[in-house]
Design a protein around this nucleic acid. Structure first.
Length: 698
RNA sequence: GCCGGCUUGGCGCAAUUGGUAGCGCAUCCGACUUGUAAUCGGAAGGUUACGGGUUCAAGUCCCGUAGCCGGCUCCA
């Protein structure tokens, strides 16, 4: 099939909305110099003897994570794992998941266990329960966990045979399923391997340290903390949700509880603060507060309307983009929102993505008096992609190699019938505008063009104020692809070279490519460290063939062009949301809906500011004077909350001096600035795409 | 689409065990005219998302629908 893999509004949720520690793919646990074991002669030492520091909660023996209770030999290489290392945090969180599961079964013995892995910043555990958990249940469970933590239960590892495991876990059907899967080579996802590793089967007993009694147990690969006490008070249950067993919607849904866990209470608080910070800049909240956009129920879910304030921002985003396109060798095209079905038959979209398309409207059918069809009708579809239409533009006349690379670009509005449950603010919508480009090149031009695209993309993104990037190279999924291996290998290598030459960090995404070609995507980190997949540069081996695209080569032969899909912003709506969250609503001056507000100290000075504002407007600045009856401090408050970058204040002093006083977003001031200077500085700040939050120096 | 939660004037929130809707901001009107984050007074604004039901009585309980939120699945 074919399809254009634009920066998809949400590919990779873990990357997209992760709050908290920037998930740098480079992040690794520190490698601690290994310690050779020279324990007592006749005794085999364990981790407790080797490491007395209580911050060390596990160890790596010859590279394998193990409990401190494991024994080591003289020839082993042993590295300590501290609780605040990446490995240590994962162990802490996984142990916390076990404590949660124990708490759940204490409260509700009927609950059957699913899996309970660590995840970024926390953990979850899935349960099969008759009644879904409620937020109130979380409070109860949190208390129960607290008791278990305080009890200081030991996690004791025990190797079992498959038969023993089956016997002990006879009442845990999901665990039995995992045991059954263990044998098969490619079982399940990573998370399941938390339960049954690749080696021997193990059960962890939770042992009461006073009585030595096993109070709970779970099938688990481990390792675990030595004691539940180490979970301390740096954990919290976050939310309840449902999740399909083993991630397939064909399976029953289990009830999932998400939690977070940290080595200290302070770190927990810091994490919670980060979540609050993220909530404060949620684009849905800011969108309402700043009167930028809304989703009227009357129109339908996933369909946004942009209010004047949002509209002007959008316009600036698009204008800048268009300017960039025109200065970089693109042709601007325009295509309709609706088309006859045949086009999407050719492109194979109806074959592959019918479910994601709005159902057709049947037009032009005519009937006679008896109701018989006298003229066949046609199905028309809202377009989910722009590429087929661009292909038609390419094909509209004979093409010469001299025109290549031909770069067609458009802000193309597309409609996708996303499942109702997946819609989310502006980041996942049913109507969106892609900044979509399709580049047709000769095979020889591909490398140069991809390199050029990458530079173009990065330069343009920097213009929006994003400047922290890394790349991801998505390569062939051996299960699902079209085209020859040779083509794939060559193209992938080309992309890799370009990526490496860019000097940016490159992360592999094996098997992540769409089946019609490999791609490079640009991930951008925002102001609070979250990463978003933005731009994609994707090769397509399929569509030129489906559309029988050709150009005449220098030797007069007909050749098939290579097609590159290039989305820069992804969708304008989603990019708008990303910028809004990145800036927390305090946009750089060029994007700010209102750039300047004049605030007279008293009504008498209004006309003086009107004169200044008139000159600003003549220079293209979005400015007005606040002539309302509010008092000056109230006006300052109003426009500060609206995050206007420049407030220009004038009273008798400034009027007499022919000057004006600036107040910036952070409350800083620059008083008595001559009007000509003030105008120049404002105009310059706009032209330079400057972010101004505080008074200029000097 | 699936699971759970939520839905009170534009926005943020209140309303004892079901007893018949209040507040702040914003809006409008009036007064005040003051150099850096809220001047004072008044008015208007809601058939409590929508549709059924239970009850003498429903914002409060039940059912359905829609929308939103958190997840899962999906994401060309």
């Amino acid at each position: 099939m074919t399809g254009c893999d634009e920066a998809s509004p949400s590919r990779g949720r873990r990357r997209d909305r992760g709050v908290g520690v920037p998930s740098s793919p480079r992040a690794r646990a520190k490698v601690v110099p290994s310690i050779s074991t020279h324990g007592k002669q006749d005794q085999v030492p364990d981790g407790f003897e080797l490491f007395t520091d209580r911050a060390i909660v596990a160890m790596r023996v010859n590279g394998v994570l193990k409990d401190l209770a494991a024994t080591v030999t003289e020839s082993d290489t042993v590295e300590p794992v501290t609780i605040d290392s990446e490995d240590g945090l994962n162990i802490l969180r996984h142990s916390a998941a076990h404590v949660l599961a124990q708490a759940v079964q204490q409260t509700n013995p009927e609950a059957r266990l699913g899996i309970g892995p660590f995840i970024t910043d926390g953990f979850y555990y899935d349960f099969d329960v008759a009644e879904p958990f409620t937020p109130d249940d979380l409070k109860v469970l949190q208390k129960a966990m607290e008791r278990i933590v305080k009890q200081g239960q030991r996690f004791v590892r025990r190797v079992v045979t498959e038969d023993e495991a089956r016997r002990e876990l006879a009442s845990e059907p999901y665990k039995l399923e995992l045991i059954g899967l263990k044998g098969s080579a490619e079982s399940g996802g990573d998370n399941e391997s938390v339960e049954v590793g690749s080696g021997e089967l193990t059960i962890y007993d939770n042992v009461d340290p006073k009585t030595g009694e096993t109070v709970w147990k779970d099938l688990c690969r481990g390792p675990h903390l030595p004691s539940t006490r180490l979970i301390g008070n740096g954990y919290a249950l976050m939310r309840v949700a449902a999740a399909y067993w083993r991630g397939s919607e064909k399976n029953p849904q289990l009830q999932r509880i998400y939690g977070t866990a940290w080595p200290t209470k302070d770190e927990l608080r810091a994490y919670q603060t980060r979540l609050e910070e993220a909530a404060k800049r949620d684009h849905r909240k800011l969108g309402a507060e700043l009167d930028l956009f809304s989703f009227p129920d009357e129109i339908g879910s996933g369909l946004a309307v942009f209010h004047p304030n949002g509209g002007i921002i959008r316009n600036e985003i698009e204008q800048y983009m268009r300017k960039q396109l025109l200065t970089n060798g693109y042709e601007l095209v325009n295509t309709p929102h609706i088309t006859k079905g045949q086009l999407f038959e050719t492109s194979q979209h109806l074959n592959w993505y019918r479910d994601g398309m709005f159902p057709p409207m049947h037009l032009d059918e005519e009937h006679d008096a008896e109701g018989n069809v006298t003229k066949q009708g046609q199905d028309y579809y809202l377009k989910p992609m722009n590429c087929p239409m661009h292909n038609l533009i390419f094909r509209a006349r004979g093409r010469s190699y001299r025109e290549l690379p031909l770069r067609l670009a458009e802000f193309g509005t597309v409609y996708r019938y996303e499942k109702s449950g997946t819609l989310a603010g502006l980041t996942r919508v049913r109507g969106l505008t892609q900044d979509d480009a399709h580049i047709y090149t000769t095979p020889e031009q591909v490398k140069g063009e991809v390199a050029r695209q990458l530079q173009f993309v990065l330069e343009t993104l920097r213009g929006y104020g994003l400047d922290d990037f890394y790349l991801e190279l998505s390569t062939k999924d051996p299960e699902k692809y079209v085209g020859s291996d040779a083509i794939w290998d060559e193209a992938t290598e080309t992309l890799r070279e370009v990526a490496v030459e860019s000097g940016l960090e490159l992360v592999a995404d094996p098997g992540g490519a769409a089946f019609y070609g490999p791609k490079i995507s640009v991930q951008a980190r925002d102001a609070i460290g979250r990463t978003w997949q933005l731009s994609t540069v994707q090769l397509d081996f399929n569509q030129p063939e489906l559309f029988d695209l050709q150009y005449t080569a220098a030797d007069g032969s007909r050749q098939q062009p290579v097609m590159i899909h290039r989305a820069l912003l992804g969708s304008v709506e989603r990019f708008f949301a990303i910028l809004l969250e990145h800036y927390a609503g305090a946009f750089p001056v060029w994007l700010a809906p209102t750039q300047v507000v004049g605030i007279p100290v008293a009504a008498e000075y209004g006309p003086y500011l009107d004169g200044i504002v008139e000159r600003l407007r003549a220079a293209g600045v979005r400015a007005h004077v606040d002539h309302s009856d509010d008092r000056m401090p109230k006006k300052i408050r109003t426009h500060t909350k609206a995050k206007v970058p420049f407030q220009l204040i004038a009273g008798e002093e400034d009027r007499a001096a022919g000057s004006v006083s600036f107040r910036f977003r952070d409350g800083s001031q620059l008083n008595g600035v001559p009007v000509d200077d003030a105008i120049t500085r404002i105009v310059d700040a706009i032209a330079e795409h400057a972010q101004i939050t505080t008074a200029w120096q000097g």
